[in-house]
Design a protein around this nucleic acid. Structure first.
Lengths: 108, 108
DNA sequence: ACAAATGGTAAGTCATCGCTTACGGTAAGC
DNA sequence: GCTTACCGTAAGCGATGACTTACCATTTGT
């Protein structure tokens, strides 16, 4: 249930914004925090949560710490979602058909 | 940002369990609640949250209310994730290459 | 008409979580 | 070596959220 951690990590809007910031490439903490509505320590805490969920990884670079997206967490989430998707779509189609036949029943 | 609602809705483990229960097909509230570690009103509240996120829909059937998975919410989430995935993977590969060249630097 | 079944909603409680300020620790520059 | 830059962590606070019990509305069956 690795996807569970990823889901709860991405649930928070600010944390998601931190995560989406890394889409443009690796960034040190200070740069990520700049332009954010919260303080730098808050961003650090978000990055820790994202890292625990396997969504980001980091490397040391002198005095700064560069974060980047780790596909492991996203991959687990994607697999779960894809697996879900087919069943969900089929079940929904069946539900739509059920609705149509009920409509016909009213016409009789 | 419809995917945001879906993410926060699926973040809670109990709510996710409710959602995954509907994978096997449409179910009335009472049936969903049976075997759950929480009370029936709690399940009702979870279903409301899932509905607001576009993840489930419901139909009236006599005195009971049958819930089933609505692909709208999952679809939005999937699109966002797929879009993210390609960029993330490419960026990570670049990061791996960067690490390798650094390893070479140490060999020199 | 009345009783039973089903489930949505209100109010209140308790834990969790996101944020801030304050502090400590490490690496680079003079 | 001393200062400066950068960042993680601790402590404390306020808000959000998940749960329970109690209650009410609607539909079915007798």
């Amino acid at each position: 249930m690795a996807y569970g951690n990823a889901l709860s990590a991405l649930a928070d809007p600010t944390r998601r914004r931190v995560f989406e910031r890394l889409r443009q490439g690796p960034r040190p903490v200070g740069v990520i925090a700049r332009g954010m509505p919260v303080s730098r320590p808050a961003v650090s805490q978000h990055l820790k949560a994202l890292k625990d969920a396997g969504l980001v990884a980091d490397r040391q670079e002198g005095t700064r710490r560069v974060y980047f997206i780790d596909p492991h967490g996203l991959g687990a989430l994607r697999r779960w979602l894809d697996q879900f998707w087919d069943e969900a779509l089929a079940a929904f189609q069946a539900e739509v058909e059920r609705g149509k036949s009920e409509q016909k029943d009213r016409d009789r």
